[in-house]
Design a binder for these strands. Structure first.
Length: 483
RNA sequence: GCCCCGGUAGCUCAGUGGUCGGAGCGGCAGCCUUGUAAGUUGUUGGUCGCGGGUUCAAAUCCCGCCCGGGGCUCCA
């Protein structure tokens, strides 16, 4: 059968010719050519810069998160689909959906209006075709009778088309439109796919802010910068876990130095700057928070950009206070980056801890099982269940290892599952006021009252979404999805 | 997409042309009633990734394809 030509955008072809200069911008506002900057104390930034510029990736290992995503029964490849399309087991679906809800909640607080739009669009649509050619990505195409469609690579299409049809006043700006895309599709080259790091189908929180002018855009940009940092922090990724990359045109930098410097000052660490002599993409300024993994590879999480083209391209207009129609500037932001990539970053971080002899774990609010009860023998199951019900009522994910295994085996399995709190329940506990709690990462058993335990957990997960246990309460009743 | 490596039981892997293809873990069935990282016995389990070819004979050699990983490229 004849192979159809793939849809490759003009931007992708033209990108090869793109020339840029690499610099380091410090929080003090000093701009250094990269070769003159001393990276002492900024090892991760160096790794990020090397990754971006030298493209040095002398690694021949599989990324550690791949084994973890499977052994923890979170995510797996689906061989019957296209590469880069994953299956999520119950625990993985739980983790993912908690992250989705968390980021969405933050966007709602920020003022985002959540919408939902189609995942596929007419390849012949003039505006869309035009945009495709400004965006360096490969698309999936879908045939339906005589028509050809492409699968969206981001929420932009639906959001922009919707905004085109909306009646917008300058009073409505900045207008914040949010969609959690499940999925965004990018037909990455086969050799580029890697675990949860680079996929062909991924979940992207995408919030656009339509702004009146550059002044408003800059103000909004700063708000969102904070939103991004807060999102990652809440997820469990601290400032030291990622590096700031800025991409900017020379002209925009020169005219907006104070603004750009203030962003890096807020960030508090030197940033890698890629400066383009001419505007090449549809944006004039963009940043990403780049996570550096266990194999020194960098990938973008949170990102935001100032788009100066698509307001016009999509015919999006607002009525100005002078009664004139104008095109807004559009900010494109993903506060966390792709959800799959967040999971990748969490797993890689856990692996790096493991290498430092720190017990690897997920943040408590994301742990599929938060507390596990292990009855010493089946005669204590009834009493253990009473405790369990009390914990469960407080909206904490608790389960019961009722398998006919030894206590030691059950503890070992719970540790392998990264269960944060493990309680062995037997003769001594029936009458006791305090429970022996094996806390992950601590050497000694901690004796706590049920009340203390519950309040410690509740305190730790405060402000985070909750979902119930994604599997049967009793381990005996659970199927095994991997191994 | 190109180059390199890999694909053998649900999982991790051993087996490189010649008896019926193996181990550990898991699953299942017993026994053990367990006190903080693997109790014990038995048993189940495989189109050797898929298709074609070479050969008296293929998991093993050759070709094509699929899937995974790495490199190149790419990462909005």
């Amino acid at each position: 059968m004849e192979k159809k030509r793939e849809v490759v955008s003009e931007a992708l072809k033209a990108e090869e010719k793109l020339k840029s200069v690499w610099l380091i911008l410090t929080p003090e506002g000093e701009l250094h050519p990269i070769e003159e900057f001393s990276f002492n104390g900024y090892e991760r930034l160096k790794k990020f810069a090397d990754y971006e510029i030298k493209k040095s990736r002398a690694v021949d290992q599989e990324p550690p998160h791949i084994a973890l995503m499977r052994s923890l029964e979170l995510v797996d490849h689906e061989p019957a689909s296209d590469p880069g399309n994953m299956r999520y087991y119950p625990k993985g679906r739980l983790v993912k959906s908690l992250l989705e809800e968390y980021v969405s909640n933050m966007v709602h607080e920020y003022g985002g209006m959540e919408v939902e739009t189609p995942i596929m669009y007419d390849l012949e649509h003039p505006t869309l075709a035009n945009y495709l050619n400004r965006f360096p990505a490969r698309q999936y195409t879908v045939e339906s009778d005589e028509d050809r469609y492409f699968l969206r690579f981001a929420a932009c299409f639906g959001g922009f088309l919707m905004s085109h049809d909306a009646t917008i006043s300058y009073r409505n700006l900045p207008m914040r439109l949010y969609e959690l895309t499940r999925y965004s599709f990018r037909r990455e080259q086969a050799g580029e796919l890697a675990g949860l790091r680079r996929l062909r189908a991924f979940t992207m929180p995408d919030v656009h802010a339509f702004c009146r002018d550059l002044k408003q855009a800059k103000k909004e940009f700063k708000r969102r910068f904070k939103l991004c940092r807060d999102a990652l922090k809440g997820i469990g990724l601290e400032e030291e876990d990622y590096e700031l990359g800025l991409r900017v045109t020379e002209e925009f930098y020169k005219k907006n130095k104070a603004f750009i410097h203030s962003i890096v000052r807020t960030f508090g660490k030197p940033a890698l700057v890629e400066m383009w002599r001419e505007r090449f993409f549809y944006f004039i300024l963009k940043y990403e928070f780049n996570f550096v993994d266990a194999l020194d590879k960098a990938s973008a999480l949170s990102t935001d950009q100032i788009d100066v083209e698509n307001g016009e391209r999509y015919g999006i207009v607002y009525m100005d206070d002078t009664g004139r129609l104008k095109h807004p500037l559009i900010l494109h932001c993903s506060p966390s980056g792709a959800i799959e990539r967040v999971i990748y970053a969490l797993l890689e971080t856990a692996y790096m801890d493991m290498k430092k002899n720190i017990a690897p774990k997920l943040p408590l609010w994301l742990s599929p099982t938060q507390i596990r009860l292990i009855p010493v023998s089946d005669s204590f199951e009834g009493e253990a269940l009473k405790i369990l019900r009390q914990i469960e009522r407080r909206r904490i994910r608790v389960d019961l290892d009722d398998r006919g295994e030894t206590v030691q085996k059950k503890i070992r399995d719970a540790e392998k599952e990264w269960v944060p709190y493990i309680i062995v329940y037997g003769e001594k506990e029936v009458a006791a006021e305090r429970l022996p709690v094996r806390v992950r990462g601590e050497e000694k058993i901690r004796y706590m009252s049920l009340k203390e335990l519950i309040s410690e957990v509740k305190n730790n997960v405060k402000g985070k979404p909750f979902k119930p246990l994604p599997l049967p309460l009793r381990l005996q009743q659970r199927p095994r999805f991997v191994g």
